[in-house]
């Protein structure tokens, strides 16, 4: 009974927040609407990372790689080859997922610190291509002039409100998809692997395959946020795939609470808001997020969602408290 009530609460909250987000477009100024758009885009990135970190127990330090591959694909296809909206989206989606599928082969059999180091090294490969493969990516200059998506005459995406609705629609769809994915038997098996991989193996699960698929799915959703980012910003550069970008995504998840879907979305909101708010006062953004990192670990080790807010308990299991970093390969 309590469980059903909890589910009802959650569903009501979800619908309420969705309605609020729809209404927000009518109320907010252009500036705040653009920040909210950004929050949603990075919310998708953080939620996709949480599939790995919070649910499968694989802390990835290179999650921006797929984000970057997708953003760059959109940029290159649209500005250089004049490919239309659906072609760009399809190409970016396929390529970022394909890169995740290839990287996954290298990382899926590792865990803990190995996983962390290999994902970071692999993301450096993507950064290296963005930075050095000047003929394709324009190197340090980045690629500018990405047009807003074109969905026909009726809906002009040049209009910020329309673009916001577009991003919001994708966001809600992604949220529900990830939610269903994680609640499926497959998603439950990921949690099992997080808690005890050896036990899952003994139960007959092919844990390698489950971890691999989890990695690819997370990379796929990360790619979706990259596509949105390219259209939002109209400009991509190697800084989008830098290590610091992956660290920021990591912080969003840690701050919000790994192992919950709402937490990372919330974490993304807080980080993006702070970034824009503080940029008026200081250029020392890295010091700020570095400090947030340390304070989060010290005082909020399980993230904001671990705080029990009015009986709405999201985080039933304590994640990342177990020693995940020990041990080598499985």
């Amino acid at each position: 009974m309590a469980r059903a009530a909890n589910f009802k609460n959650k569903a009501l909250l979800f619908i309420g927040v969705s309605v609020l987000l729809v209404l927000a477009a009518q109320v907010l100024s252009t500036y705040w609407l653009s920040i909210l758009t950004l929050v949603l885009i990075f919310g998708i990135l953080a939620m996709s990372l949480d599939i790995l970190m919070g649910y499968t127990g694989l802390p990835s330090f290179g999650h921006s790689a797929f984000f970057g591959v997708a953003a760059y694909t959109v940029a290159i296809l649209s500005t250089r080859y004049g490919v239309g909206f659906w072609g760009c989206v399809g190409g970016a989606f396929l390529l970022s997922t394909a890169v995740a599928a290839i990287f996954g082969l290298l990382v899926a059999h590792t865990k803990g610190v190995y996983f962390l180091m290999i994902t970071l090294a692999l993301s450096m490969v993507v950064w290296g291509l963005a930075f050095r493969w000047v003929g394709m990516t324009s190197g340090d200059n980045g690629i500018s002039g990405i047009p807003r998506p074109d969905l026909g005459e009726a809906v002009s995406m040049g209009d910020d409100v329309n673009f916001y609705y577009f991003v919001l629609a994708v966001y809600i769809a992604v949220f529900l998809l990830i939610y269903l994915f994680l609640r499926s038997p497959f998603g439950q098996s990921l949690k099992g692997i997080r808690e005890s991989e050896s036990r899952m193996k003994n139960l007959g699960y092919n844990t390698w395959l489950h971890k691999y698929l989890s990695y690819v799915v997370a990379g796929m959703f990360s790619g979706i946020s990259g596509i949105l980012w390219a259209y939002y910003n109209g400009f991509v550069s190697p800084s989008d795939v830098e290590i610091t970008a992956s660290f920021e995504a990591f912080l969003m998840v840690i701050l919000g609470g790994p192992g919950t879907l709402v937490g990372p979305a919330l974490g993304a909101g807080i980080i993006i808001f702070l970034q824009n708010f503080l940029s008026a006062f200081t250029e020392r953004w890295l010091i700020v997020i570095g400090t947030i990192y340390i304070l989060t670990i010290l005082y909020l080790p399980h993230g904001i969602m671990a705080l029990n807010i009015r009986g709405l308990k999201f985080n039933k299991t304590k994640t990342l408290s177990n020693d995940q970093t020990s041990g080598g390969t499985s």
Partner: peptide, 22 residues
């Protein structure tokens, strides 16, 4: 446990980068 330690060194890495710039 080890995970918080790794994350903490990550926070320091970001702070050090910016401090040297300052």
């Amino acid at each position: 446990t080890h995970f918080p330690q790794v994350l903490m060194t990550m926070g320091f890495a970001l702070i050090f980068r910016d401090l040297t710039l300052v």
